[in-house]
Design a protein around this nucleic acid. Structure first.
Lengths: 222, 222, 222, 222
DNA sequence: TGCTAACCGAGACGGTACGTCTAGTCTTCGT
DNA sequence: ACGAAGACTAGACGTACCGTCTCGGTTAGCA
């Protein structure tokens, strides 16, 4: 999460001011909310943080890296998955939790901005994936494991298929929430979350039930 | 969809060069693919279009407006929904079609860029919605109507619930495709499309079958 | 004095609006006073004159020509030389008269502007000379003739020397007044005019008296 | 003479590159000769000087200030007054020296341009006065002191009158040379210089002789 | 205690693009 | 043919940030 290149164990000289890191990331988030990605300038971030521009460039390589780091921290804190007793409830929980995160202006702006930028920058995409996306995906895996333990879902024997399935569910949940929030610009309220969860639980059940195939070219409910 | 301020029927003075509009929008798309949103400069667009910068600023207020107009045209051409005989097949069709659109570099870059910018600009969001999103949503409505005609889905009596349901399906399909493409950065191939379609058809069936409830906190398939 | 190319007696088509010429020149002078040469724009002049830019360009070739024409008129009106009875008084008179002209903001600004431009444009310099300078020089010749008639100055026999002398006196008077007004930025009051006239009368007398030499490398009053 | 805001002894930050100042002023003079005031662009000056436009704007507020500084340097180097043994010869010397300076294309163009602009800008006029004019005036004072030491001119007792007198002589010399060069567009050759010097020496002698009055409304040679 | 290496702030540097403005030309309509 | 309106190309304007580079000064840890 921290800097681009973790300093290779310096031993001498004045150590870096640890407070500066925090001040810079805070300032980045604040500036992002006020100005948006396009108007965000590193000079302004430095001023807000009470730090010289040099200091900032000494620690991050550019705007992208800085903003990804600034946003990634938010995802660390706010994603967990308390066991709510059923797959339906667990899905509703994670949907609402993710939505709450996305409603925060800094998250919304920052996430879309870095994702947009990542369409042209593979390194940035990898960075986003490891810093943000993979953390969310683990929740999906956790939810599935719980549902399997409860007997709501069968244990998957084909490992590759299991992977594909988890990826699909993850893209559906995350994508739907993001699209609802940012594109449709409508609220993710409990009712909507329940609808989405119901759709998914129903779909998963139908796929698991009749023949257990997770993917196939034939009709799903034939 | 056309220019920012549709000229209010001027009657005097030299008329605007209609070719210029086309040249500018073409140049914008080309520059977008080569350079990406961040490096796109209006001066460069003007040069490519063989037009003075002034002409460009006379017709569009800024980068956002220009790019939205340049991109909106792409969405006009490529969205249709041939009847493939089943709900499952129709969904697969729309998913693959939308994915094909998103794979094109100019669409990918441009769409994400304007969406990102729209998180800070309500006018821009409305602009995107009317130019791009609403057109896609009509495909969802068409698909549902066909499925109902075929007997695959029941007719919804509660109009409000029907609306909510269509919105949900739309967010799920569009969101999942976008997330798969841009965030997960994996291909939307027929297999994945089939999986998604199967999940949705199953889910829709389960919601319609037992009690027809679109939202409920109880287990979906108990 | 009027347009750059005196229209060669057109006979067909709509005749030019004669009022427009006057309105444009008035607007030019007004704009010149308010904005100065550097900030004067032809578009602004056209607007002030209630005339299209095209009309303006059809009649004058550019900024220089327009401003010279606009300024030349001012010099027509204000130069005459009533006989005040002595060379000293006549010089004081012409000095004060010229100074009064230069104090007017439009004259000051305009004259310097076109003179400055003329350092790079020989055609413009000739234009200025015939329109403005030569008119003033005739006053010097008139004053000398009167002084000779009164017996204050001897008749010059060497015609070339007489010419040189008149040129010198003209440069001294005009130059001193301009320098006092524009560079030293101090008023040309009667006291100063008297001092200058006294200096010149004394100088002329000393040159005419001892040997009549207009040029000589020896001391003037030894 | 130096920069717009003589930096009040900054102590922090990277110090300014002293060579840049010289390169910019040199480039300004060169561009002025080639292009003239009207076509001179600061961007071009920056390019010629091998310097960024920003650097130029950081040190001078605009075209006027830059050109005044660029020209003022010439006056520093090229104006001095060697003692030539007599008032007549000293005046001839300063006239020829000043004329030589004015013949140089950059001086001619630049001086007239800034003087013209100064008719609308008091700050610019003060700048010109302190940077250029006052330096020339000191030569007049020096010449008078020498003439007084030689006994060619009496010592002035009335200090105010002495000031007025010096101002008059200065306006006459400078004004006559400028007018001859720029308006009459004729050369300042030794013959003309001698004529002007003779006129002045004679005038000064006549004013000093009879009654010593430097200014008066009565005839000068009564 | 003193050395020394890495830090820090400030701010100038060469660049690039911005969005605006003006010059001077061209095109259309209406008189 | 003219006048008015206004679009056109071309290019300078002065500003804002970029990311880099000197500076003079500070602050640890090792000797």
């Amino acid at each position: 999460m921290s800097s681009t290149a973790p300093p290779p164990a310096r031993r001498t000289g004045r150590p870096r001011n640890a407070e500066a890191d925090r001040a810079i990331l805070d300032a980045t988030r604040a500036a992002l909310v006020e100005l948006g990605w396009g108007k965000l300038t590193l000079g302004d971030v430095a001023t807000r943080a009470g730090v010289a521009k040099t200091t900032l460039y000494r620690r991050w390589a550019g705007k992208n890296e800085l903003v990804v780091d600034a946003v990634a921290a938010l995802f660390d804190e706010h994603l967990e998955l308390p066991d709510r007793g059923s797959l339906q409830a667990d899905i509703e929980g994670v949907v609402l939790q993710f939505a709450a995160l996305l409603e925060r202006p800094e998250t919304k702006t920052a996430l879309m901005a870095v994702v947009a930028e990542s369409t042209r920058d593979d390194a940035l995409r990898d960075r986003i994936r490891s810093a943000i996306v993979d953390r969310q995906k683990s929740l999906v895996l956790l939810g599935r494991a719980r549902a399997q333990a409860r007997g709501e879902l069968p244990y998957e024997e084909d490992t590759a298929a299991a992977h594909r399935n988890a990826d699909l569910i993850f893209d559906v949940i995350a994508g739907a929430v993001v699209h609802r929030t940012l594109v449709s610009a409508k609220p993710v309220d409990p009712e909507w979350a329940s609808g989405l969860a119901g759709l998914l639980v129903g779909g998963l059940a139908s796929m698991a039930g009749p023949g257990g195939q997770t993917s196939g070219h034939g009709p799903a409910s034939a």
